[in-house]
Amino acid sequence: MIDTVLLPLAGGALIGVAAAAMLFLNGRIAGISGIVGGALGLPRGDLSWRLTFIAGLVSGGLLLSLVRPSSFPTESVASTPMLIAAGLLVGLGTRLGSGCTSGHGVCGIGRLSQRSILATLTFIASGATTVVAVRALGGF
């Protein structure tokens, strides 16, 4: 109950607060793939807020690892080739599809964007299908 409902709700609310703050203060959508992908493009004058947001994410991770180490897995869940394949697909797919879990799944749905609702249903469906396929092939 605590791990599957209350903490997810509390964490989700914090994510909503952070995303709303980015909108209210910076006028930006808090979509991680968009922020990171945009930083790679080095657009003029548009880089610093992206890098400081990313630095904030990493700092938050560092803080969590000190205060609440149970937030992170103690052992690896995927092999190195699997991690590389997964990362490549996530990088490519989020840029092609203009967003990820945060940009489409939180901000887009929060704005009632039809594009984001469709994208979110699509990546959950393809993810679920992938889990079934990997299990059938003997993975996980």
Binding site: A85, A86, G87, L88, L89, V90, G91, L92, G93, T94, R95, L96, G97, S98, C100, H104, L118, A119, T120, T122, F123, I124, A125, S126, G127, A128, T129, T130
Partner: peptide
Amino acid sequence: GAAIFGVG
């Protein structure tokens, strides 16, 4: 794009 992302 969303479908590819979901797989990864």
